[in-house]
Write a protein that binds this DNA or RNA. Sequence first.
DNA 1: TGCGCCTCAATTGCATGCAGTTTGAGGGCC
DNA 2: GGCCCTCAAACTGCATGCAATTGAGGCGCA
Lengths: 250, 250
Amino acid sequence: MAPRPASKPAEPSDKVGLICRALRRAIIEQALAPGAKLPEDSLGERFGVSRTIARHALGQLAAEGLVELRRNRIAVVATPSWQEARDAFDIRIELERLVVRQLAGKLTKAQIAELNTHVDAEDRARDGSDAVSIRLATEFHILLANMTNSPILVRYVSEVAYRCCLTLSLYSRPHSSECAINEHRAIIAALVKGDEAKVMSLMHSHLDSVASRALVAPAPQRGRDLLDILAPYAEEGERVVKLPKVVRAR
Amino acid sequence: MAPRPASKPAEPSDKVGLICRALRRAIIEQALAPGAKLPEDSLGERFGVSRTIARHALGQLAAEGLVELRRNRIAVVATPSWQEARDAFDIRIELERLVVRQLAGKLTKAQIAELNTHVDAEDRARDGSDAVSIRLATEFHILLANMTNSPILVRYVSEVAYRCCLTLSLYSRPHSSECAINEHRAIIAALVKGDEAKVMSLMHSHLDSVASRALVAPAPQRGRDLLDILAPYAEEGERVVKLPKVVRAR
DNA sequence: TGCGCCTCAATTGCATGCAGTTTGAGGGCC
DNA sequence: GGCCCTCAAACTGCATGCAATTGAGGCGCA
């Protein structure tokens, strides 16, 4: 009967989940820009785990669409096309309308307080880095989703919100999120009031305006240049031709 | 300049994907019922790969919600609660309304033919096993999603459709999918006609009726007995008390 | 007979090792 | 000077091995 000095329930470890969370956060804060390389070794070394674990984590993130995995190639942070970004926002709108529909008039006092606290934090971070603002704004939506107590809805909203975050860093140049905060407050108010239709419409226009502010030009306005421009021309997505290489006759 | 005898594009291998697809199919055809154990060794042996690969595949399926992974325990086919099933259908309704909204009036002749062919196959399978009927019905919806050319939408619709499939095997007893086939035909007709509002409403009522036919009773009507019944009483989802074990005073 | 403890086979968590593929940098050739 | 070829380093794909945890059967005790 060893004294068992509280070493039993210690760490559930879950190293994979740890790495996933870290990478997710790094990605949405743009510490890792789209296209950034993610070699298994480096990740493993950085997090003090073996390649096996890093690899597994990359697999999970790829399933979420945050990472692109090509066989025998280094994993990279996903670079969604403009169309994919638009699609993600469309899906997000529907999912989040569902969230607020379920939540309207059903929030507890504690939940309302939590939401207000969060928006206050958004307010305070307004002068900080854009990255933090974006993260907080995203987390507001995830916080809402969490309150539905529907694990599935939480997962989908989180995933698609992260993806949208990713596209923001790709396609929106200056990022103006100030007004978004007021829209968050309006959503909370409508939720408390219990006006289902109103809050659904608010959420719709909120996300729609974020999307349209961000996804302005279908034409890539400058970033990543050649790669992006050539992407649509690579038929099967397989191997874009190098730079000055001309495809010559067989 | 080797002749390169077409050995280059041969097998991309992708053993993980292979196993995932196989398991997914086995699950939705109810060859693997909810709660079925999925030991890594056995899977690896069965598919001729190492545990590493089997493990990775299980991780992917867990991310999709088809498999439950508990630390240090054997993976099992997911057993969604009744509430989760209901949530999945709610999400599915919104996603598939989006699908048909995007598709209304935009189908090519080839696509229409493909859809009709599929429904014909559903018709022919009507006398076969329920499992095949369910699979075909699900694949109809995934086929629709595919036609949106939105990879994200395809992924979410597929996932949530598989999850719903899973719940059908749990909560619906006899399964009556005959009328569903006619509803599929009606949806195709409305899509061709291009009536957005009509087709969205059709899809809504179609899925709603499938859900309500399947998810009849919030009370577990019989299956899996004690485990299911006790589940809601396990506060943190952690470790349901054994059978005749009484929690005694400290 | 029944209840609890103990032990051990089964199984997972994770790291490491080896083989095959890709990358990109240098050198030779035009 | 530019192109191509070659080769080695870097990296991924996968299997295997070892330690830790689980849970199930067996043994002892009441």
